[in-house]
């Protein structure tokens, strides 16, 4: 097996060159090559983190805008509700007032009419007494041949009072 031929001078020099090449490779990698990779990776990490931060800030901004919008909507809705309620109340009040004046007018008319009716009825009642007295007098005169207007008047009054009372 050539690998175990330690008498070969190339074996010793192989190890010496191995140490030199490996040491050189380590030096180059640790001082030049790997820091470059690390710098690029670090740069990318920082960039992604910055982008994420920006996205987070934008989201927070959007959230506040959304909240403000929701608040404004709620306020506008409340205002509209209040306006509707006020308008309804006003309409109610106006309608009430209108109805009241109408009622008052109608009541007045009713009262006037009633007064007129009472007057008419009283007049009619007065006329009735005269007609009744005259009729009774003429009837009594025809039956008896004489008439006592005062007695007839009393009798009519009594009968009317009894009718009005009943």
């Amino acid at each position: 097996m050539p690998q175990l031929d330690f008498g070969n001078p190339l074996m010793i020099s192989q190890i010496v060159w191995l140490m030199i090449i490996f040491g050189l490779l380590y030096f180059i990698l640790s001082n030049y090559a790997l820091p470059r990779v690390e710098a690029v990776l670090e740069d990318r990490r920082a960039r992604i983190a910055a982008d994420l931060d920006a996205a987070r800030a934008a989201k927070a901004e959007a959230d506040t805008a959304l909240a403000a919008h929701a608040e404004a909507t709620a306020k506008a809705r409340a205002e509209a509700q209040a306006a509707i309620a006020a308008a309804t109340a006003q309409a109610h009040a106006e309608a009430q007032a209108h109805a009241d004046t109408l009622n008052a007018k109608l009541n007045a008319q009713i009262a006037a009419s009633e007064a007129r009716i009472t007057v008419a009825r009283d007049a009619a009642m007065g006329a009735l007494r005269q007609v009744a007295s005259e009729t009774a007098e003429s009837l009594v005169a025809k039956l008896t041949g004489r008439a006592d207007p005062a007695a007839v008047g009393r009798a009519v009054d009594t009968a009317l009072a009894a009718r009005a009372g009943s």
């Binding site: 001078p9 190339l10 010793i12 020099s13 192989q14 010496v16 060159w17 191995l18 090449i21 490996f22 050189l24 490779l25 180059i28 990698l29 030049y32 090559a33 790997l34 470059r36 990779v37 690029v40």
Partner: peptide, 25 residues
Amino acid sequence: IGFSQSNMHMLVAGLLIVALLMVGM
């Protein structure tokens, strides 16, 4: 200087590694 083909391959490997990192980055 006792530079065998084994050491030559070490050198090539080292150059390839450095090239991969340096050219790649």
